[in-house]
Amino acid sequence: MESLKYLLELNMVVIENGKIKQEVLRVDKEIARGAEAYIYKGSFLGIPCIIKLRTQKSYRHPVLDSKIIRDRTIREAKIIISARRIGIKAPAVLFVDPDLGVLVLEYIKGRLLKDLLKNLDDEEACKIASTAGSYAALLHTNGIVHGDLTTSNMIYTDHGLFLVDFGLSDYSNDLEDLGVDVHLFLRSLESTLWRRASMLYECFLKGYQEIIGKDQAFKVKEKVREIRLRGRYIAERRMRS
């Protein structure tokens, strides 16, 4: 029971005079399991949180295993912080333990864009899709690609639209990577909102173009066309959270 061992290690408490004085991190339940990590729901200093635990892989050399887990945990945390700094709403990073491969993020309560868009009228849906587009452009102009930019990774809350799961994100200015982000968004629209997909894609592009500029937006759009013609399946979902 590898995962159980981890769970016990994850629960952190402050003990004073033999009594639990404060619960630092509490793990409640597993909510998803991907190729790379387990996802739990819990609380951190009383704040509802998501705990992402990158797992050891027996097929990796132990030195490589620790390095990969460490590097990726740090990278994900760093990118989330960069994204927040440039004005994108993303979950706050509450705690990072690179050696254990633990990332604790603020739990975002709201509705997945995937579900929400179905129930909104055209005008409201368009406005949100356009915000999603401006987020994508903000990331891209700052040299970041999300890597899994789908409507399942966007949560609409009382405080606006949040972007989550930066697990596949990276630093890149490569047109191909930007194209993949936009392509993934379009495909996620098509898989659930086929009736309004092209309308919402236009809204997304409008928001995208406003930030990134007409020339670059055109280039990315062309790239998306090319990617789609290739018929490739890229950067599919690894985990649901």
Partner: peptide, 18 residues
């Protein structure tokens, strides 16, 4: 060889999970 093989196994693992 550890790095090269592991990279391939990792990508295959993602495809399998997906």
């Amino acid at each position: 060889r550890e790095i090269a093989y592991t990279m391939v196994v990792e990508v295959a693992e993602r495809a399998l999970a997906h």
